[in-house]
Amino acid sequence: MIRSRTLEEKLGSLYRAGGRIVGGVYLGRGQEAFSAAAGIHLRWDKDVYGPLIRDQAGRIAFGEPLIDSLRTYLGVVTGPMRGRDGNIHRGQPKHGYMAMISHLGSLLSVVAGALFARRIKGTLGDSAGATSIGDGGTSTGAFHEGLNMAAVEKLPLVVSIANNQYAYSTPTSRQYACENLVDRAHGYGIEGHSVDGTDLLACVKVYRTAFERARVGHGPQMVVGRLLRLGGHGEHDDASYIPESMKKIHESRDCLTVAQQQALDLGWTTQAELEAWHKQARQEVDQATSQVLKEPTPDPYRETWQALSTTSLVEGNEG
């Protein structure tokens, strides 16, 4: 969480400084606990993870090197997307790390498909899949179709819904008419859990149960976290549509502060150690940033301009 927050602060300042990050910056501030708590239950190369917009913390917890985020935002060729795609649209499918497209909802069935294939190949073992979405994304047909399919196939899939109460500017009252999104689990015939998404310990507990149940054959698990993004939709957005009173309440429930207090209260760490972690994270992020700033950006003359793996079938680009 600390590394995620520190990294995202850097991304925000790079964006505001202008020049190097072209295009949007989408941060997960305020959602780190809910995201990381899922990520820590996932194993790189063993499980399947399809994170979305606000999952920097989950991506780190899953095992993505922190530098890959910077590399993707800066579009350098050393990054996993080599400048072809950017920002949050990154992954390494060969390691079970799916690369989201922008179209909300459409990753769920992809994660389900990976699990489905493992099952028919007999390689599923105790692996599980996880993907996440916001309250807004649940309104897509793709989300519904994917979840229904996963339920029919009883796949070991944990679906996180980060209910941060707004989809861009749109409040949940314009998004769905049910009282609580978790009620939908019943309709899909799957198990549902809800949790205070700002409470790290509660999130970890809920995900532990959800992943355990998914892995032993109880089918998809829906985990709905209540929280608020502590920022705009992207860094270009001041979120002026969120009432100040609501922002204040949530700023005082910043999940990182909550988590640190929890760790202190339980005697897991000390103030000094926390500070050391923050310092270490800043050093790591600064070092990664200066490294990435030196790395090469893509050269159109070296780019293959081929979208097929079967290169013999690629037509000339003279078109």
Partner: peptide, 9 residues
């Protein structure tokens, strides 16, 4: 004939 790339270059 490729998807539209992210990096301005």
């Amino acid at each position: 004939d490729t998807p539209i790339p992210y990096h301005p270059n």
